[in-house]
Design a protein around this nucleic acid. Structure first.
Lengths: 133, 133
DNA sequence: GTGAATGCAAACTCTTTGCATGACT
DNA sequence: AGTCATGCAAAGAGTTTGCATTCAC
């Protein structure tokens, strides 16, 4: 499916496998670490593969404001849309995903009202997780 | 009002003045540029003042995913809450703010349902602005 | 006068790029 | 064989930190 003019290679394969397993957001560092325990992958290859997958809309980039990028697979499976957003704990840094169809509905409705043609949206809630309260 | 144990200085004064004028998100680079046309302010002082104001909750940090931080004054005035979110044009990079009380209501309602105590939230819509269509 | 804020410059981290090597088709 | 992905190392950008100086109280 990604034979949209791109070959496969060790780094890309490994990245795809990782995203198939891991559902939520990962930083490039985490990705490099996980991959290197199996077969070492150069940092540059991680970034290049991430860029490619992102441009093909197979992964989503998330930025919670700590200066590092995070990526997770795009949840665009036909039928049930597993699109989700994130809760970030300011104390321990835990990042968890959540879905809310009401929120999606409001954003979708909103999208028609500002002259922009909206293609993506991102919602981040910050606070304190149950364990850190 | 920010005599919460902090003195004033040229850099902080200038930053506060700037945020009083400029309502929407600015990057540290933009801030340094604007301030330097008046009285030069060192980059380090910009970052330090931003950190301070942010820790005092007087400004908000926004990250739209392009690798640079943005800050704008916190719209927490009593009475009318001018809290807003952002539309980002992927083509020209323009960033504009919008308010939507319906969206706020949904997020507020949502906040009680995940065990987290939510203190902030951030919504970014990405797409194409009218001029870039 | 004392302590805190500022400026300068160097250090650090994350990310990107150039170029040669190696792999996939 | 030819093309494209990978690895390594160096470059680039944004941000942070150390230390001496200057300013605010």
């Amino acid at each position: 499916m990604r034979r949209a003019g791109h070959n496969r290679g060790a780094a890309r394969d490994a990245l795809i496998d990782l995203f198939a397993i891991e559902g939520c957001a990962l930083t490039p560092q985490e990705i490099e670490g996980r991959l290197s325990s199996d077969r070492p992958v150069a940092r540059a290859s991680v970034y290049r593969a991430l860029e490619l997958l992102h441009s093909l809309r197979l992964i989503t980039r998330i930025d919670v404001g700590d200066g590092v990028a995070r990526y997770e697979r795009a949840h665009l499976d036909e039928g049930h849309d597993h699109h989700h957003h994130h809760l970030l704990c300011g104390a321990c840094g835990e990042l968890v995903g959540f879905e809310d169809e009401h929120l999606e509905a409001v954003i979708h409705e909103l999208s028609g009202r500002h002259g922009f043609r909206i293609s993506e949206h991102e919602v981040t809630l910050r606070g304190t997780c149950p364990s850190c309260r």
